[in-house]
Simulated assay, not measured.
Amino acid sequence: MYSFMGVFTTAIFWSFELIFDGIFNYQYAKYLGALIGLTIGYIIKYNLDKRFVFNMEQHQPSQDKKV
């Protein structure tokens, strides 16, 4: 799951970089797109990892269950 989150956010980064490079006729447009994409990607990755990968409640058995 952790690896998938990394691939997903890397695709966001590359998409922003390529879109900015293609749309704007400016020398540093792809770097601006990369910065924006990287920022958005890391924010999304942090939240997804916190919810799905490093969620301790999800990985621990419930204490309420009786055997």
Rank of each mutant, 00 (worst) to 15 (best):
H59L: 11
E57T: 06
G37A: 04
A11N: 01
Y26D: 10
A34H: 08
Y46S: 14
S62H: 03
W14T: 10
S3E: 13
K66M: 09
D21M: 10
E17H: 11
M1Q: 10
L38G: 15
P61Y: 00
I43H: 01
D64F: 07
F4H: 15
I23Q: 02
Y46V: 09
G37L: 03
G6R: 09
Q58V: 13
N25M: 02
Y42W: 09
I23H: 06
K65F: 09
E17S: 15
G41F: 04
I44E: 00
I23T: 05
D64N: 09
T9E: 07
Y42S: 08
I40M: 05
L48C: 12
F8D: 12
L48Y: 08
K50P: 04
E57F: 06
I19C: 05
F20Q: 02
Y26E: 11
V53W: 07
A34Q: 04
F8A: 13
S15M: 13
I19K: 08
A11D: 03
T10G: 08
E17R: 13
E57Y: 07
N25A: 10
P61E: 04
V7R: 09
D49P: 02
M5I: 15
R51Q: 11
F24E: 03
I23E: 05
Y31K: 00
Q58D: 14
V67H: 07
L48V: 10
V7F: 15
I44R: 01
D49G: 06
T10Y: 12
I44D: 00
D64A: 07
K45H: 09
